[in-house]
Amino acid sequence: MPEGYLPILVMLLVTGAFATIALVVSAVLGPKRSNPAKDEAYESGILPFGDARRRFPVQFYVIAVLFILFDVEVILMYPWAVSARKLGVFGLIEMAIFLGILLVGFVYAWKNDAFKWQ
């Protein structure tokens, strides 16, 4: 069965080749007239100051952590979803318990204002 995925690989190679060709062709064809102003960061016309990689709001991090938590849950549900009819009531109850535990975490995060942007 793994050879059934070969077409996907072929497709990825074709799209990758397109991206590479586009970048290379443009780099070859375009003019090359560099000057110091073109090398600067764009900051709406004022002189750029400092590095961009400074501290940023922790909220982005919270969202990312929550995503990992719930996405793992979602991924675990895929195999169950495909065979739900075979697993029947047993699978349903198992999934309900699993979801219930995760929902407690979700409610906890919600009550702690994790989704409120400060």
Binding site: L23, G30, K32, D39, E40
Partner: peptide, 25 residues
């Protein structure tokens, strides 16, 4: 296609070029 290719001095060169390719493919 005929625009000048500018890679500004302050960027991370490899990832900067890789970004668009990684988005389009």
């Amino acid at each position: 296609i005929f625009k000048e290719e500018i890679i500004p001095g302050h960027v991370d060169k490899v990832i900067y070029v890789l970004g668009p390719a990684l988005a389009i493919a």
